[in-house]
Design a protein around this nucleic acid. Structure first.
Lengths: 153, 153
DNA sequence: ATAGCGGGAGCATACGTATGCAGTGTTTCC
DNA sequence: GGAAACACTGCATACGTATGCTCCCGCTAT
């Protein structure tokens, strides 16, 4: 044994979050490539211990992902939740995206946007129920508005 | 065939969100109890079409859940995200829970708490970076603080 | 009417995952 | 040191899930 269980777990988390892994044998191959040689049985146990979830991607193909709990601090998740819950409308106007929300939620949304590190978000300004999102260009603003609109539903 | 595919899908969503279903045969049984008799093969296809995810509960037991996308409007999800992302500290004080957050996030947190419909949340009052959560009793406040603290990490 | 098409579902089975058991190595406590 | 307890893993296999094939039904155009 060259790699301990804990290191293997880190490795699995890393692999799974970087590429689509649909079966435990695929994962096994990836681990072997990284110099970690174990059997499927071990991987099955690892997966339970890590709490990995098996989902389907947009094409219905299987995929393991990190447990939801582990993604709780992911800025993208936060934006999804806060925007899905409190967002009302999005509209581009020049190189600005105007985002309307439930009263009081705007600062949180703006903060979530800031933390995204999104290329098309230059900066944000929040009121009580409105966020102005400044984009680099009109074109970017339109794209961004579309992206945010998709989250709203 | 008495139930169409669409109705069966609704039924599956309902069952899966109400109780822990660990295998497709368990789900099959539940459907039969609801007067819908199909085979495991059909359920396998349904599960892919619905995009259900197979996770592990806190004891490592398997469980199907609705896809993450479908839970985006779940108030509990919103609270998790917003609190996990922006929450700082929680402390009970009398029958009040004092919640400190990142600047500006308090109103969103308060809103998320309100929408929970939680028995121990009588009402909330939000400043910029502080939420006061009013609980029915000191006991409730302590319990509530513990619950919220768990979300923070 | 009927031939042709497409969706839905069952059956059998291939594919994928979990687990009882046994073996090995490590730590702990006499 | 030696025994006991424990953690980790592989092997074989039981368990669980996906899918190729087929049939059936309902629709449409001929």
């Amino acid at each position: 044994m060259q790699l301990g269980k804990a290191e293997r777990h880190r490795l699995i988390e890393s692999v799974v979050s970087r590429k689509r892994v649909g079966t435990q044998f695929e994962l096994l191959d990836a681990l072997v490539d990284s110099g970690c040689s174990v059997t499927q049985a071990t991987i099955s146990r690892d997966i339970r211990e890590l709490g990995l979830e098996k989902t389907h991607d947009q094409f219905g193909r299987p995929r393991y992902v990190l447990p939801h709990a582990a993604r709780r601090n992911d800025p993208a998740e936060a934006l999804n939740a806060v925007l899905g819950q409190f967002g009302r409308t999005v509209a581009p106007a020049g190189n600005i995206v105007v985002l309307q929300s439930d009263l009081g939620a705007a600062p949180a949304i703006a903060r979530a946007l800031d933390q995204l590190g999104h290329d098309r978000v230059v900066g944000t300004l929040a009121g009580d129920d409105t966020v102005l999102v400044v984009a680099p260009s009109e074109r970017d603003a339109r794209t961004l508005a579309r992206e945010l609109g998709a989250i709203l539903g």
